[in-house]
Amino acid sequence: MSEPSNAWDGAVVRLWLARRFDAARLDQAAADRRDYESRDEYDKAAAEEWVCRALQLPDCIETQALFAQRLKELIRQEDYPATGVYDDMRFERHVRSQPRKIAKMAKANEGFDKRLHYQ
């Protein structure tokens, strides 16, 4: 892992995950109210919620190395159990993309300070 420009702050990452978790829940509710075309958006938001929930373990956020290790475990995982999604294959594809995106952020230690709803 390359050296980040600023020090790792687990509290900032924990807050970012909590905000993204809440935003994903809101996105699911909004997509659920819309028609058939929004099923992909629902599955994408459900995948983001699933990943944020899986990453909110108390011991994996404290250091950058533990967080990166947990992300690698999620990427290697074969099965992502979830209920209520419309398309399991699409959901799994979105779940696999989320840890990769977060891993890039963790490697550079950038982006966790951006907490707007839409990213």
Rank of each mutant, 00 (worst) to 15 (best):
W16S: 08
R25S: 14
L26A: 12
D32I: 06
D87C: 15
V51T: 00
E48Q: 09
F91E: 12
A45S: 12
A47C: 10
L17D: 01
L66H: 15
A30K: 04
R34G: 03
A7I: 08
E62P: 01
L66Q: 14
C60W: 00
Q56F: 05
D79R: 06
P4E: 02
R76P: 02
R14F: 09
T83A: 12
Y36K: 08
G84F: 11
Q56T: 11
R39H: 11
D79V: 07
A23V: 04
A54F: 02
R25I: 14
A45D: 10
R14E: 12
E48L: 08
D59N: 09
T83D: 15
W50I: 00
W16I: 05
D32S: 11
D88M: 13
A24C: 04
D87Q: 14
A45Q: 09
L57V: 00
Q77D: 04
E62C: 04
D35H: 04
E41T: 12
A68R: 10
T63A: 13
R33Q: 11
D35Q: 05
L71N: 05
P81W: 08
K114D: 14
H117F: 14
D22L: 04
Y36C: 06
A11I: 09
K72L: 12
R96E: 15
A11Q: 08
A47I: 12
V13W: 09
Y42Q: 07
E110R: 06
F112Y: 04
G10M: 08
K101S: 02
T83K: 14
A47V: 08
A30D: 08
L15W: 05
P99I: 01
T83R: 14
F112C: 02
E37T: 06
S2A: 15
R90T: 08
G84V: 15
K44W: 14
Q28M: 14
A11T: 09
D9L: 06
A108N: 09
L74T: 07
A68G: 15
R93I: 14
Y118A: 08
L71R: 01
S2E: 15
D87M: 09
R25H: 11
E92I: 02
I102E: 01
R14Y: 08
V51S: 00
Q69A: 15
E62V: 13
L17E: 01
E78P: 13
H94V: 03
A30W: 04
E48H: 05
G10P: 11
W50F: 07
I61W: 00
Y118Q: 11
R25V: 14
M1G: 15
L55C: 03
R115S: 07
K44Y: 10
D59M: 02
K104G: 07
L116V: 06
R115L: 13
A18W: 07
P99R: 00
Q56D: 13
D113N: 09
P99W: 03
Y36N: 10
P4V: 03
L17P: 01
Q119R: 07
L74Q: 05
E62H: 04
R33C: 07
A103H: 00
C52P: 04
A31R: 03
V95W: 09
R19E: 03
A45L: 10
D40N: 14
L57S: 00
R70Y: 02
V12I: 09
Y80V: 04
A29H: 13
Q98R: 03
Q98A: 01
V12P: 03
F21N: 00
A29I: 08
P81N: 13
D88F: 10
W16A: 05
R100W: 01
S97H: 12
Y80P: 01
Q28Y: 05
E3W: 05
Q77Y: 07
